[in-house]
Design a protein around this nucleic acid. Structure first.
Lengths: 207, 207
DNA sequence: CCTACCGATCGGTAGG
DNA sequence: CCTACCGATCGGTAGG
């Protein structure tokens, strides 16, 4: 876990700069990977996008594959943070569920492109990278299951199995294929539609 | 001139052979495009898969892009035929819906790999190819809308808008990401799960 | 459908 | 982070 660090600690300013450049590369790569696909995106495309020369991204990442992995993990970590913030303090299962759905849609449809890379480029991951990504992905998905379980306990979900979650993820993740900002439906409207389909309305409360 | 023999007109068998080779290439390309992605698949991969040399696929297709387009259109046409056979003679909206869902799952999960290419490689289509593919795709999707409309008329669907169809397609199409044959759930079980989520059970009939 | 081949491009590296 | 570069590979073609 802990590596022996013999190098002197990098100075704050320099470290921040390096981190910024790295973050810029991740953001640019994410956008290109979504637009053109991982294989169709060249290192030169990515370097151009941030004003570097073609060899320079390799100062920040050891390979193109490493960039892909980093983009995905970055996207998952942002999603995890948003998720935790969204459900913090909520008690009611349906409120929690609603918050998770909206948070998820926001992550995949609003400005962040890193998460969608995960949806598009799973195949392009090497086995080693995939194992690392799965570890973070599992943490993200693990948050859903207890919420679905509580929802079922409350009689508002017919099925809380893994298949149910996969169907829900399918409906939500597919939105990246058709959603366009300003295209008639807002994020919240889409979220409500998805929730209506999955949550039973046994209380007869008006929608 | 008298000596220069013209080739005899290709006989039926020859024409059929050519069609077979072309079909073989489409099938092999479909599988590779799904497994590795369009960009990561080389013409050499495809040629190898059917026992040709690397230059020979261009005898059947004018470019790699042309192969992609052909694979997708082939997949859509098979889907269209299966779809028509599935609903033929059915009257009840829910029966029709159930038949469409099962037919769709069969097409994307059972042996045909051409249709999933459509789900995976939309980005890789050139604008010209895309227009051709969209024309066939629209025919496939057009069959769903009246069925959803009738289902809503019968009070068994809360929403028959385009969004409803997109959510359903999302849930169904996402199965290619997680379904594995023999992995616990059969195709029909998945279909029933999906139908349960989308169809309201206002009649109280047991599931 | 094969042989033989080409121009272009790509991921990556050495050395500063 | 840049310059300069390389080996490998790729889509595609000419000519049979």
């Amino acid at each position: 876990m802990a590596r022996s660090e013999k190098k002197p600690a990098p100075r704050k300013a320099a470290a921040a700069d390096e981190g910024n450049r790295r973050a810029e590369l991740i953001r640019a790569a994410g956008r290109l990977f979504v637009d053109k696909g991982f294989d169709a995106t060249t290192i030169r495309d990515i370097a151009d996008a941030v004003g570097m020369r073609s060899g320079s991204p390799f100062y920040h990442f050891k390979s193109k594959q490493d960039m892909l992995k980093s983009v995905m993990i970055e996207g998952l970590q942002a999603a995890l943070e948003a998720q935790q913030a969204a459900v913090a303090g909520l008690k009611d299962p349906e409120e929690k569920f609603r918050a998770l759905v909206k948070s998820h849609l926001r992550i995949i449809l609003e400005d962040h492109t890193e998460f969608p890379v995960l949806l598009y480029e799973w195949r392009a991951l090497s086995d080693e990278s995939r194992a690392e990504v799965i570890a973070v992905k599992d943490r993200y998905e693990a948050v859903w299951q207890p919420v679905l379980r509580d929802l079922k306990k409350a009689g508002r979900l017919g099925d809380d199995s893994k298949v149910a979650r996969l169907m829900l993820f399918g409906a939500l993740n597919w939105t990246v294929q058709w959603y366009r900002p300003g295209g008639g439906l807002t994020l919240d409207q889409i979220a409500e539609r998805a929730i209506d389909f999955f949550v039973c309305d046994k209380t007869g409360k008006p929608k």
